[in-house]
């Protein structure tokens, strides 16, 4: 199989074993929106935020890098992240999506759809600790 670039974390490779907050083990390609939501509900520190894709641009530094701008949470804070084009995000109700799904499937064998403006991704923030 193809070598995974060092910049891509190993847990996105198809077949990787993921432990949910309740201890259940699932393969990365089998994860559902509910798995993330329920895990965050159990977590004492993390909460799920909705992050809407507002813009996707190429990077000046590398053709394999994209800059994705999100609008995060109810305050619609603007956050930009620079990622490899094959880096997968989890879209609510849809599953893994990336800027270049063909590359994601090729490199990670992870089934993936095209990340588009307007998609709502799962992201994490800290719960308010009192």
């Amino acid at each position: 199989s193809a070598a995974v670039p060092p910049s891509l974390p190993p847990y996105f490779i198809k077949g990787s074993i993921i432990q949910l907050a309740d201890g259940e083990l699932k393969r990365v390609e089998d994860l559902k929106t509910e798995d993330f939501i329920q895990s965050a509900e159990i977590s004492s520190e993390l909460k799920i935020d909705s992050s809407t894709v507002e813009r996707i641009e190429g990077s000046h530094t590398s053709p394999n890098v994209a800059v994705v701008q999100f609008s995060v949470g109810e305050h619609r804070a603007q956050v930009s992240v620079e990622v490899m084009v094959e880096y997968p995000f989890f879209v609510f109700g849809q599953g893994w999506s990336s800027c270049c799904p063909d590359r994601t499937t090729q490199l990670l064998e992870l089934p993936c759809t095209k990340l588009s403006v307007g998609d709502v991704c799962i992201s994490l923030t800290l719960k308010n600790l009192r």
Partner: peptide, 19 residues
Amino acid sequence: VPVFPWHSLVPFLAPTQSD
């Protein structure tokens, strides 16, 4: 076989809170 925690798969996007 390595086991990864669920939260490592999710980007941590922390907006600056003004309140």
